[in-house]
């Protein structure tokens, strides 16, 4: 693979983490415009750990994920009682406030005769761990996809667990879920923390992939995009957001097919797609059908159908 392609594929992998983070909250029925804040916090934290304190990369990523989770917990506590638009705007306000705080954040030390560290609006340059330790671009891509695969596997297990079922129950109807004995606020808080962890981990990878982060990257646009990826790709499975990222970054941004008209084509396509499939390409029904086909279970016999009328397929 050439460098350009490796760059694009790595980028898709890293952005998938934010998309998955937004997807996880969408499962519980909450729209967050603020997942980019945890991405930013993860990126800065892991950058500080490896480039300034010169600790190992794994520790940097771990610190990024942990701060992402901690920040999500802190924001989740007051905001998760909110609903719908109010929650969405509260997360937006938080994320924009975080972005501006990073614009004001200066913390630099001298290393090898150079100043290293976040420098306000100028950003945080020289997060050069992977160059200093001779990790090639291909190897780093494999690290990204290894972690992404692990995250997906975790989400796959989660969706089969009681907790995952509770997420979707709350997403369908939180009042009904509560009457079924689901502790709504703690479960939502768990979802928010997991989402923060995933975004923080992705942020750490992003910082090391680009070696440079600045506050302007983490604006509302990134947040709304990551939300849109889930809806374009589909809310039925964790592969949905991935598909959304591949469609946007892989197909449109990287190939310069439409040059100046990219957004006109993409915007129109998404709008039409959402009319046809309001829950995205891989929506719950399609995923359900695929699962049944894969399991090769015999179709229910007509006698079973009569109980509740025709079974929906």
């Amino acid at each position: 693979m050439d460098d350009h392609l490796i760059g694009i594929v790595s980028n898709i992998g890293v952005i998938s983490f934010v998309a998955l983070s937004a997807y996880l909250l969408l499962l519980t029925g909450e729209i967050s415009f603020g997942q980019q804040a945890f991405f930013a916090i993860g990126a800065y934290t892991s950058g500080i750990v490896t480039a300034m304190w010169q600790l190992p990369f794994a520790l940097g990523l771990g610190a990024g994920a942990a701060t992402g989770a901690a920040a999500a917990l802190l924001v989740g506590l007051p905001t998760l009682r909110l609903h719908g638009l109010q929650f969405a705007i509260a997360t937006l306000a938080f994320a924009e406030a975080v972005r501006i705080l990073f614009e004001l954040f200066r913390y630099q030390i001298v290393r090898d005769g150079e100043l290293v560290g976040p420098n306000g609006i100028e950003g945080f340059r020289n997060i050069r761990y992977i160059f200093e330790n001779d990790v090639s671009a291909t190897e780093f891509m494999l690290i990204i996809y290894g972690l992404l695969g692990a995250t997906l596997f975790g989400l796959f297990l989660l969706e089969r667990s009681r907790l995952g079922t509770a997420f979707r129950m709350i997403g369908e109807d939180d009042l009904l879920a509560a009457t079924q004995g689901v502790a709504v606020v703690p479960v939502k808080l768990t979802a928010a923390c997991l989402a923060g962890t995933i975004a923080g981990l992705g942020g750490g990878l992003y910082a090391h992939l680009t070696t440079y982060v600045e506050p302007a990257i983490f604006d509302v646009m990134l947040g709304v995009h990551s939300l849109a990826y889930g809806l374009i790709g589909g809310l039925g499975t964790a592969f949905g957001p991935l598909l959304g990222v591949v469609i946007d970054i892989g197909l449109l941004e990287s190939t310069r097919w439409f040059a100046g008209y990219r957004m006109i084509v993409f915007g129109g396509l998404v709008a039409v797609l959402l009319i046809v499939r309001p829950r995205g390409l891989l929506d719950e029904q399609l995923v359900h059908r695929i699962r049944r086909a894969v399991r090769r279970r015999p179709r229910p016999s007509p006698a079973n159908d009569t109980v509740l009328g025709k079974e929906l397929s």
Binding site: L227, A228, L231, I232, F266, G267, G268, V270, A271, L274
Partner: peptide, 10 residues
């Protein structure tokens, strides 16, 4: 909402 965001880009 997401659809209106896509049209925003457009």
């Amino acid at each position: 909402m997401v659809s209106s965001f896509a049209i925003w880009m457009q």
